[in-house]
Amino acid sequence: MQQTQLADAIGRSNGSTATRVGQARGGKVAAIVATGALMATTGAAQAAITVPQEMLDVFTDLATAFGTLVAAGAILFGVIRGAIALFKLAGRVFSAAGA
């Protein structure tokens, strides 16, 4: 397989002699996944984080407010979209009737 200069430079800068995408990234992805799994297991065994109830209450209130805004936006969108659809339908009906 013929290597291009760009592929060769990328392979060297990544510390890999393989220049195909699957070969060059395969080893690094496996190493990253293994490192992440190791850090997750050791971190979970040593970390005990407590969050104050006041902070949980604040974020619960924020989530409720955000959900209310999203629901109101969805309802408003539906009302506007429905009104536009009705006007288009009325326009077709009246144009077909010759008005």
Score class of each variant (00 low, 15 high):
Ala34Asn: 03
Ile10Glu: 02
Ile84Tyr: 12
Ile84Met: 12
Ala97Glu: 05
Ile10Cys: 04
Ala74Leu: 14
Ile75Met: 09
Thr35Phe: 09
Val93Cys: 02
Ala45Trp: 00
Gly91Leu: 06
Ala31Tyr: 00
Lys88Ser: 09
Asp57Ala: 08
Ala9Phe: 06
Ser13Asp: 10
Leu69Cys: 08
Gly15Ile: 00
Met55Cys: 04
Gln53Val: 13
Asp61Pro: 01
Gly98Phe: 01
Thr42Asn: 04
Lys88Val: 12
Lys88Gln: 12
Asp57Met: 04
Leu76Gly: 11
Ala37Gln: 15
Gly67Cys: 07
Gly82Ile: 05
Thr50Asp: 07
Leu62Ile: 13
Val79Gly: 05
Glu54Ala: 13
Ala45Glu: 02
Gln53Ser: 10
Gly36Pro: 01
Ser16Ala: 10
Asp57Gly: 00
Ala40Trp: 00
Ser16Trp: 00
Phe77Val: 06
Ala71Arg: 06
Ala31Ile: 03
Leu76Asn: 13
Ser13His: 11
Phe77Leu: 11
Ala47Lys: 14
Gly26Leu: 01
Val58Glu: 06
Val51Arg: 02
Gln5Val: 10
Val70Asp: 15
Thr4Asp: 05
Leu38Phe: 08
Phe87Lys: 13
Gly36Val: 06
Gly27Glu: 13
Val70Thr: 06
Thr4Ala: 00
Gly91Thr: 08
Ala47Gln: 10
Thr68Lys: 15
Ala34Cys: 01
Val93Lys: 09
Ala90Glu: 12
Gly36Gln: 05
Gly27Asn: 06
Ala30His: 06
Gln5Asn: 10
Gly36Trp: 02
Gly43Ser: 14
Arg20Asp: 13
Pro52Lys: 10
Gln46Val: 11
Gly82Val: 05
Met55Trp: 15
Thr17Asn: 09
Ala45Gln: 02
Leu86Phe: 07
Asn14Gly: 14
Ala18Gln: 05
Val21Pro: 03
Val79Arg: 15
Ala85His: 11
Gly22Gln: 04
Ser95Asp: 15
Ser95Glu: 15
Thr64Gln: 15
Gly82Glu: 15
Ala37Met: 11
Leu6Pro: 00
Gly36Ala: 14
Ala48Asn: 15
Ala47Val: 07
Ala24Asp: 11
Phe66Lys: 11
Gln2Cys: 07
Arg25Ser: 13
Ala99Glu: 06
Thr17His: 09
Ile32Leu: 14
Ala34Gly: 00
Ala45Met: 01
Ile10Trp: 01
Lys28Thr: 12
Ala63Tyr: 04
Leu6Met: 05
Gln3Asp: 11
Ala34Phe: 03
Gly43Phe: 06
Ile49Ser: 02
Gly11Val: 00
Ala7Pro: 02
Leu6His: 04
Gly22Ala: 07
Thr42Glu: 12
Ala71Thr: 08
Ala31Pro: 01
